[in-house]
């Protein structure tokens, strides 16, 4: 099974989640905190923090979470679609002290909605709330924006280990709901092999569909 993961009721769900965001917003710290519960620790056992997995049990259902880190440098921006195709969720991280990184998140949201429509669960994450004093992105702005694009907004601090568990747990629940809805739709008659198989082909005339689904507000 490719993206959607599960087969039946008692099956294990496998979800792919991409981490998007600018260079120094703390994507890596976030996942390392989540999967290893470590922050800036010299004794981190993992060799790398770019692909991490986590096994969860949510409401008696097993979930395998694969977290894909992406290169945040501007020059790799164009490679985004290769990373996020077939992903079930995306975590868009910005630094609350860096207005610019929030703009980048907005760009990502637009792109993801355009390419993947509403199949993907979006989480917008303001990281580094331990630096509240230096905050440059207002909470209200961020939350309003998130709501307007059908995303959930979270505040986290990888340093203080705040909000991270909730973020991933929430995301998993939402992805499970989406997957179950998908299954029901499939059960209603659509041939299953076509959707569950790989290869999201990037179609350019998708945006109308996406905007119709409620992304109308984000202009420019």
């Amino acid at each position: 099974m490719a993206a959607g993961g599960a087969g039946g009721a008692s099956k294990t769900y496998s979800f792919k989640v991409v981490l998007l965001g600018e260079g120094c917003v703390g994507k890596t710290s976030l996942v390392l905190r989540y999967c290893e519960n470590k922050f800036n620790d010299k004794h981190i056992t993992t060799l790398q923090a770019s692909f991490l997995t986590k096994k969860l049990n949510i409401g008696g259902k097993r979930v395998n979470l694969a977290i894909w880190d992406t290169a945040g440098q501007e020059r790799f921006h164009a490679l985004g679609p290769i990373y996020y195709r077939d992903s079930n969720g995306a975590i868009l991280v910005y630094d609350v002290t860096d207005e610019d990184s929030f703009q980048k998140v907005k760009n990502w949201v637009k792109e993801l909605r355009k390419m993947l429509g509403n199949e993907i669960c979006l989480c917008i994450v303001g990281n580094k709330i331990d630096l509240e004093k230096e905050r440059n992105v207002s909470v209200q702005d961020a939350e309003e924006y998130a709501e307007s694009v059908g995303a959930k907004h979270y505040h986290t601090s990888a340093k203080l280990n705040k909000g991270i568990e909730e973020l991933f747990l929430d995301l998993c629940k939402r992805m499970m709901e989406t997957a179950q809805a998908d299954e029901r739709a499939k059960g209603n008659g659509a041939s299953q092999s076509s959707t569950s198989r790989r290869g999201v082909q990037i179609v350019d005339d998708e945006p109308q569909a996406a905007t119709a689904a409620g992304v109308g507000c984000c202009s420019g």
Binding site: L47, W68, D69, A71
Partner: peptide, 17 residues
């Protein structure tokens, strides 16, 4: 190679280049 050089787990920012 990255871990030896930087002494921390490699992120995608390091890995891809």
């Amino acid at each position: 190679a990255i871990k030896i050089t930087k002494n921390e787990p490699a992120s995608a920012d390091d890995f891809l280049p």
